[in-house]
């Protein structure tokens, strides 16, 4: 078996009267693409928020590359190489592509004694071009403000950011939710690119065909428990749907609709 990049053991999380996670185990190998599925309220997002440092678990341990990890903030998670691409993308839409990719880690000229940090735009643009081309992303003009770009292009910018951070695990919450067919294909392609770069990906979505298109393995949550795990090559959408809803009779189509 491949070495786990991340292994979370017995994760519990309670919100008031609701037990959101009831002792869930979760693991991702290096360069593995894992689909995380489950109905609304199954605990997918809660689990991912815990892994990315946005929430603290009530109980449970997280190991990263075999060592116990202490993740209590998104900064901590980032130090371990875990990056989250948010559903709402969270880009500064008034900035251009390099501005967003390097936001918060701008490359500066070394000017000693000037007392100010000057942007090295040329370097950042060149590096942005490299990143985008290594992901085979085409964006006509880097100087374009993100506001003027399509949903898929924005997604690409958000993903390129994680590559710059040399992330080892990228968590994507519904990256294909708001996209058209052609754009979805591009984002799925980006996930394959990340895998090629040895980056592990956790991909949350309601759309099973997207999961089957890119994931190596599928983990199913239901009511805060892990109810199943399948290799994508050894399962069907029907079986996964049954796991998600917990009964055979409800499994009508391969896609679980948003309620």
């Amino acid at each position: 078996m491949k070495e786990h990049f991340l292994y979370a053991k017995g994760i519990h999380k309670r919100f008031g009267a609701v037990q959101a996670l009831k002792g869930v185990d979760f693991e991702v190998a290096c360069g593995e693409v894992v689909g995380l599925v489950g109905d609304n309220g199954a605990g997918k997002s809660t689990l991912m928020k815990i892994l990315s440092g946005a929430l603290l678990p009530d109980q449970g341990e997280i190991y990263i590359q075999g060592e116990k990890a202490h993740i209590s903030s998104p900064q901590d998670a980032r130090r371990y190489g875990i990056e989250m691409v948010y559903q709402d993308l969270a880009l500064a839409e008034n900035l251009d592509v390099p501005g967003n990719i390097f936001l918060g880690r701008e490359v500066q000229y070394r000017l000693k004694g000037l007392g100010t940090r000057v942007l090295n735009r040329k370097y950042m643009e060149r590096k942005t071009k490299e990143l985008l081309s290594s992901l085979r992303i085409q964006i006509p003009s880097l100087r374009q403000r993100v506001r003027t770009m399509s949903g898929g292009q924005r997604q690409a910018v958000a993903i390129a950011r994680t590559l710059l951070a040399q992330a080892k695990l990228v968590i994507m919450d519904e990256p294909t939710a708001a996209l058209g067919v052609a754009e979805v294909e591009k984002v799925l392609d980006l996930i394959r690119r990340l895998k090629e770069h040895g980056v592990a990906v956790v991909f949350i979505t309601h759309r099973l065909p997207h999961i089957f298109a890119v994931c190596d393995r599928i983990v199913v949550l239901r009511s805060g428990e892990r109810v199943g795990e399948r290799k994508t090559s050894e399962t069907t959408m029907e079986e996964i749907t049954q796991l998600i809803v917990g009964s055979k009779t409800d499994a009508v189509s391969g896609t679980v609709q948003d309620q």
């Binding site: 969270a90 701008e106 942007l119």
Partner: peptide, 27 residues
């Protein structure tokens, strides 16, 4: 010069464009 060419200037724009994103990105 400050607004257009320094890191702080860039962060001023970022904060004005998307405060939450800027915070998440560690600004």
């Amino acid at each position: 010069f400050v607004l257009g060419y320094t890191v702080w200037g860039q962060h001023l724009y970022a904060v004005g464009g998307n405060l939450e994103a800027a915070r998440r990105f560690g600004i």
